[in-house]
Design a protein around this nucleic acid. Structure first.
Lengths: 186, 186
DNA sequence: ACCTGAACACCGTTCAAGT
DNA sequence: ACCTGAACACCGTTCAAGT
C-alpha cells in the first residue's frame, strides 16, 4: 500500500509541476521539457515516463479539469439556447479559457486525432457532435460537418500569436460559426 | 568563381535532396532530418545550415515553385470571376496541390507568421489580401477579416489525416468560404 | 510493484580546421 | 569565400540496478 500511495503522490506531483512549468512559460507547449519536469518534481525520468508515455498524455492530464468543464458546459447551454447560439456561447467560453491558458487549445488539438486519451477526447467529440446534430436537426447547421471538422478549424486558435489573440480569436470564432450555417439555397 | 558555382550547386543539391526525401515520406514535414539531407546531398551539416538557417527556410525553398504558382493564379482568377468565386477557385487549386504535396500546406503555415522568408510570404499575404479586399468592396466578404485570418484557418488542412483528406478538405474549404460571407443582417 | 538516474539515440547547431 | 565533419547541447526514451 505504501508503494501505491507513493505512486499516486508521484503522479500528482508530476502533473502539478508540469502545470506550474506551463504557466511560467505562458502555456507554450513545446517549451515543456520532460527532463525538467521530472527533475523539478523530484522523480526519475523513468517514473514520469511510466505515468505518461508521451508528452500529450501529460498535457491531457494537466488540462483535464478545463476540458471536463468545457464538455460539461455543453448540455446546459443546449438547454437554454438554440443550437447555434449554444455553440457560440460555448466557443466564447473556450476562447476565454484559452486566453488565460493557451495550452488548452493544444490539449484539444493534441487529443483530437489520437485514440490514446480516449476518455477525455471522446467526450469532447461527443459533446461537440451533439451540438452539431441538434443544430442540423434544427436546420441551423449545414449537413456533412462533424466535430472533427470543427476541431480542425479551431486549431487556428492555438496558432494565433499572443499579441494578436484578442483581435483574431473573435474573428476565427465568428468565421467558424457562420461557416457552419446552412449555405443560402441560391 | 569556381567556389561560388560550387555553392550554388550545393544549394541546389540540398533542395533537390530535401524534395526527394519529402516525397518519399509523402511530405511529412517532421520526418525531414536535416542530418540525413546533408548526408544524402553529400555536403557537411554546416553547409546546409549556412544556406538554410532553419528547417522552415529549407521548406520554403522546396515549395517555392508551388507557392509562386498559387500566388500568380490569383490575378487571373480575379479577372474572370467575382471575388468570392475567385477565392473558391483558388482554394480548390490549393487543395489540389496539397493532395499531392501535403507539405505545401506546411510551407504556407510555416511562412505565415515569420518575417524571415519575407519575399515568398508577403506575396501570398498580398495576393490573398487583394482577394479579400475586392470581396469586401463588392460586399461579398465580411469586414474585419484579413489574409492572416484565412491562413490560420487553412492550417486545418495540414492537420487532416491522410485517409480523411478528400472528405474533410472539401468541408474545411466550404466552411471557410461561407464563413467569409457577410453575416446576414438579421 | 515501483522508483532512480545513468545511458543511449537522435537531431539541430556550432566551430576549428581545411581548401 | 566556402566547405567539412567532429563535437556539443538538448531531450525523449530505455533499462539495469535498487528498494
Amino acid at each position: 500500500m505504501a508503494s501505491r500511495s507513493d505512486a499516486v503522490a508521484n503522479r500528482d506531483r508530476i502533473v502539478e509541476t508540469a502545470r506550474a512549468e506551463l504557466s511560467r512559460s505562458n502555456g507554450a507547449i513545446a517549451d515543456l521539457k520532460l527532463h525538467a519536469v521530472a527533475k523539478a518534481a523530484g522523480v526519475g525520468q523513468g517514473t514520469l515516463y511510466r505515468h505518461f508515455p508521451t508528452r500529450e498524455h501529460l498535457l491531457a492530464e494537466v488540462y483535464r479539469h478545463e476540458l471536463t468543464q468545457l464538455v460539461e458546459a455543453v448540455a446546459p447551454l443546449l438547454a437554454e439556447h438554440p443550437p447555434l447560439a449554444a455553440l457560440t456561447a460555448w466557443l466564447d467560453r473556450l476562447v476565454g479559457y484559452a486566453r488565460v491558458k493557451r495550452g488548452v487549445m493544444a490539449a484539444i488539438e493534441a487529443s483530437a486525432w489520437q485514440d490514446l486519451y480516449a476518455d477525455q477526447h471522446h467526450r469532447l467529440d461527443e459533446a461537440l457532435g451533439t451540438l452539431l446534430e441538434r443544430g442540423q436537426a434544427a436546420g441551423e447547421v449545414r449537413e456533412g460537418v462533424d466535430a472533427a471538422d470543427v476541431i480542425l478549424l479551431l486549431g487556428a486558435l492555438s496558432r494565433i500569436p499572443e499579441a494578436e489573440w484578442d483581435r483574431r480569436a473573435i474573428t476565427v470564432v465568428a468565421l467558424v460559426v457562420d461557416g457552419l450555417r446552412p449555405p443560402a439555397a441560391g
